[in-house]
C-alpha cells in the first residue's frame, strides 16, 4: 500500500502542493527538450530527403561548437567566428555530398547509414587533431548571451529562469519558425519536401538530388551550430556532447522519422517528461539518474502501440 501511494499519490500531491516548483521542473525539462527537438529536426530533414539515417548528427554538433570556439581562440571576433563556422559547415555539406553520398547513390539504406558512421569517425579524428581533445568553454558572453537570471513568483512561490536558458528557448523557437517558413513558403523548401515525398516526380520537375542534399546537410549544419552553442554554454564543449545526439533517438521513435511536428513535440515531451520523472519518481524511489534511460523506455512503450511513432505516417515502402 505504501509503495502504491508513493507511486500514484504522493508525486501528484507534491505537484499540487508546490506548483511553483512543478513549473521550475517543467521549465528545465523544456530547455533540454528544445535542444533534443533541434537535433531530431536535423535528422528528420536529412532522412526525408535522402532516406539516410544520419548517425553523424551528434558529431556535427560537437564539430560546429569546436570550430566556433577554436576560431575565436585564434583571435577572430565572436560573430565573425560564427559566420566562418557556417562557411565550414557548408564546406562539410558539399564535401559529404561529393565524396560520400554521390558515389553511393542507389545503394541500400544500410550502406548509407554505415557511411554516416564513417563520417562520424572522420569528424572525431579531424576534430581531435585540429582542436585537441580537452574540454573547452563556450564563448557565451562574447556572443552577447546574457548570463544572469530572473526570479518570478508564480502562485506566491519562486521560479528561477536563467537568462541563458531563456535565450536558448527563444533562439530555438526563432530557428524553427524560420525553418518552417523556408520549407513551407519558398521554392527551395518545396523542393526539399517534394524530394521527400516522391523521388521520380521530384526529378521530373527539375530538382537536382545533389543540390538538395547539400542544402539539407547545410541546414542540419546550421541547426548543429545553434545546438552546439546552446548546449556548450550549459555544459562546456567536448566530445562528450556527442551523446546528446543519442537523445534524439527516442525523440525520433516517438515523433516518427519523417515528421517535423513530431520532432518538435517529441523533443519537448521527452525533455519535460524525463525531468518530471526524475524529480518526482526517480529521485525519491529509484535513487535518481533516471534521465539516462527514461526516454528510451518511454519511446519503446509508445512503439509497442504505434510502431510508426506518434506523428509518423503509415509505414510504407517507397517505390
Amino acid at each position: 500500500m505504501e509503495m502504491l501511494s508513493k507511486i500514484f499519490v504522493e508525486p501528484f500531491a507534491d505537484m499540487v502542493a508546490a506548483p511553483d516548483f512543478l513549473m521550475q521542473v517543467i521549465w528545465e525539462g523544456l530547455v533540454s527538450g528544445v535542444l533534443y527537438a533541434l537535433i531530431a529536426l536535423g535528422f528528420v530533414l536529412i532522412f526525408r530527403s535522402s532516406r539516410i539515417f544520419n548517425f553523424a548528427q551528434g558529431i556535427m554538433v560537437v564539430f560546429a561548437a569546436l570550430t566556433l570556439v577554436g576560431l575565436h581562440a585564434m583571435g577572430i571576433p565572436a560573430w565573425v567566428s560564427v559566420a566562418l563556422t557556417l562557411v565550414v559547415m557548408f564546406i562539410i555539406a558539399v564535401a559529404i555530398e561529393r565524396i560520400v553520398l554521390r558515389p553511393l547513390v542507389g545503394q541500400p539504406d544500410i550502406i548509407l547509414f554505415m557511411a554516416t558512421i564513417g563520417i562520424t569517425l572522420f569528424l572525431v579524428g579531424t576534430g581531435e587533431t585540429i582542436f585537441g581533445g580537452e574540454n573547452k568553454v563556450m564563448i557565451t558572453s562574447e556572443l552577447g548571451i546574457p548570463t544572469g537570471d530572473v526570479v518570478l513568483e508564480p502562485f506566491g512561490g519562486f521560479l528561477l529562469l536563467q537568462h541563458l536558458d531563456i535565450t536558448v528557448v527563444i533562439s530555438a523557437a526563432l530557428l524553427v519558425c524560420a525553418l518552417l517558413v523556408f520549407l513551407g513558403k519558398t521554392q527551395m523548401g518545396r523542393a526539399i519536401r517534394a524530394l521527400g515525398d516522391d523521388h521520380q516526380a521530384a526529378l521530373s520537375v527539375g530538382i537536382s538530388l545533389q543540390t538538395i542534399w547539400v542544402l539539407v546537410w547545410f541546414v542540419s549544419g546550421i541547426i548543429a551550430l545553434v545546438t552546439g552553442i546552446a548546449w556548450g554554454a550549459r555544459a562546456g564543449v567536448s566530445f562528450a556532447l556527442e551523446i546528446i545526439a543519442f537523445k534524439a533517438l527516442p525523440v525520433l521513435m516517438l515523433g516518427g522519422l519523417e515528421s517535423i511536428t513530431g520532432a518538435i513535440i517529441g523533443g519537448l515531451a521527452i525533455g519535460v517528461l524525463e525531468k518530471m520523472f526524475e524529480i518526482y519518481w526517480g529521485q525519491p524511489l529509484l535513487g535518481g539518474n533516471t534521465e539516462v534511460w527514461f526516454a528510451y523506455v518511454l519511446a519503446l512503450g509508445v512503439l509497442l502501440f504505434r510502431p510508426q511513432g506518434l506523428f509518423g505516417e503509415k509505414i510504407i515502402e517507397r517505390v
Partner: peptide, 14 residues
C-alpha cells in the same frame, strides 16, 4: 507521381 503530402497549389508550384 504527385507529392501526395503537399497541397495542389504546392504541387503545381514545384
Amino acid at each position: 507521381a504527385l507529392f501526395e503530402g503537399m497541397t495542389v497549389l504546392d504541387n503545381v508550384m514545384t
